[in-house]
Design a protein around this nucleic acid. Structure first.
Length: 477
DNA sequence: CCTGGAGTTGTCCTA
DNA sequence: TTAGGACAACTCCAG
């Protein structure tokens, strides 16, 4: 019998373990592992700067795990796949599903066309606990409120466990003509930022597992309360690993459950699993509302009088708003490609509600700057903050960056980590230096407007303006 | 179809 | 000093 040769098309499943597409391919015979950088079909959402950095290193790690036999390409997947199929005598093509609308329609076409060539083509679920179309209300319409959505998924039983035992039988096609071309994707820029990024992160399957172990031992025991404090090591920092599929949500779900059961941490674990479920909820919403990335879920917001002042946006991006917690968050983001969850909410709320800037501008910047930039999560979360999204924050819920700062960064540890010019500022003034007496600050070498920016908006006045703007919205539909 | 209870993460004012 | 209610009204969802 002739040996079967399968292409495994890696996309957002950059791991060998618990990979359903790879598992199936291995069960049939030899595997040709490939990655295609597709910027032609990506429309408005090609990978941003931070994502490209992560992708490069994650691919390098995957290639290493495959003993250098990962074949990388840059271009249109259909063209590349059909050429490969012809040149390499391929019998099967397998992949794990992606869920961004442009990916869905691209993959649908490719699947159909390759089947026409007589090949066996199959896609698998390697990235979600539940397929988005498998969770809906009894009448078939999508959930728009998280808690009932979550209850429904829980009632479906624990997420299934994925397997890794097939890896002992992994039999790779080696093709030195096609492999070793990672650098030609040009994902990396040779700058100071790139070099410093590697100090913060270890992209790849092993790095993901290490992050998980760190989280279980140090973060999970204090997760419920600690996750609100940006200077604590309580959050998982697994989001980029999850986005690129270096670990599956199933693995995280079970690892957390198991660890919790041995350590009496069930409540903590439940709270983390709720966050995994929010990710699922976002994917579900993007599935049912594919233009969620650009269109308000609540169309009443279509008439919102957004502020078009680009100077304000620039200052927000640069971490120069004069509100230390906001600036610390934005600088953490630009330096590390990451921002603590609570600070994301506060910086986003500030942009949308104090500066009255369209949430889409914020989403665009986050997309470029975040290593975990994820279309479903990013779009849903920004709409949630803006008030236009599903189960959204009520419009009168406007974060006060100074109050939040005092509450969640009381000793200003996080602020001082990212804003060196305030290192010597006394705690009493550091949460809102613009309102401190300048003579006092001068004593500590701080001159507002010179060494640190003065506040770009008045909180009280901008809050009032936001409330008025929201009040002006009429009900449409 | 009707109905009642609920809805991730706040802030501010008042007594 | 602190706790509780107002903020505004909606839509969602399960029974």
């Amino acid at each position: 019998m002739k040996e079967t040769k399968s292409i495994v098309w890696f996309r957002q499943d950059l791991r060998l373990k618990e990979n359903p597409a790879l598992e199936f391919a291995v069960s049939l015979g030899k595997v040709l592992p490939i990655y295609i950088l597709d910027q032609e079909n990506a429309g408005d959402w090609p990978p941003g700067k931070a994502s490209r950095w992560w992708l490069h290193h994650s691919l390098a790690s995957l290639d290493n795990a495959l003993n250098g036999s990962l074949c990388t390409f840059n271009g249109d997947p259909f063209k590349i796949l059909t050429e490969l199929i012809a040149d390499e005598n391929i019998n099967n093509v397998f992949w794990n599903r992606c869920y961004e609308p442009w990916q869905v329609s691209r993959d649908k076409t490719i699947k159909c066309e390759i089947k026409k060539l007589g090949l066996n083509v199959k896609s698998f679920n390697g990235s979600l606990l539940h397929e988005p179309w498998e969770v809906s209300k009894s009448d078939g319409t999508p959930y728009k409120v998280f808690t009932p959505y979550y209850r429904q998924t829980l009632s479906k039983g624990t997420p299934k466990k994925l397997h890794s035992d097939y890896l002992t039988n992994l039999n790779l096609v080696s093709n030195s003509k096609l492999s070793g071309k990672l650098d030609s994707l040009n994902l990396l820029s040779e700058d100071k930022w790139s070099k410093e990024m590697i100090l913060n992160w270890t992209p790849g399957e092993d790095g993901a597992e290490n992050s998980l172990v760190t989280f279980l031992t140090r973060g999970l025991p204090q997760y419920k309360r600690g996750r609100d404090y940006p200077s604590m090591e309580a959050v998982s920092r697994l989001s980029p690993h999850l986005h690129f599929g270096e670990v599956s949500p199933n693995h995280l779900w079970h690892a957390v459950t198991e660890f919790a059961s041995h350590n009496k941490l069930d409540t903590q674990a439940e709270h983390y699993q709720r966050e995994l479920a929010w990710r699922e909820f976002s994917y579900s919403l993007l599935h049912y509302f594919p233009d969620l990335d650009v269109k308000n879920l609540n169309n009443r917001f279509d008439e919102f009088p957004w502020n078009k002042n680009t100077e304000l946006i620039k200052k927000w991006c640069a971490g120069q708003t004069g509100y230390p917690l906001i600036d610390a968050g934005m600088r953490e983001l630009s330096n590390t490609g990451y921002m603590h969850n609570r600070v994301r909410m506060i910086t986003a709320s500030f942009l949308v509600k104090n500066l009255l800037v369209d949430w889409r501008s914020g989403a665009q910047y986050f997309w470029d700057a975040l290593v975990d930039a994820d279309l479903a999560n990013n779009s849903c979360s920004w709409q949630w903050v803006a008030g236009s999204g599903a189960d959204a924050a009520p419009y009168f819920r406007i974060f006060n960056p100074v109050t939040q700062s005092k509450k969640f960064d009381p000793d200003a540890k996080y602020i001082k980590q990212w804003i060196p010019e305030l290192t010597d500022c006394p705690n009493k003034y550091i949460h809102d230096p613009s309102s401190a007496p300048s003579s006092e600050l001068q004593y500590f070498g701080i001159r507002i407007g010179k060494t640190y920016p003065s506040a770009i908006v008045d909180l009280k006045a901008s809050r009032e303006a936001a409330l008025n703007a929201y009040h002006s919205l009429k009900k449409i539909s």
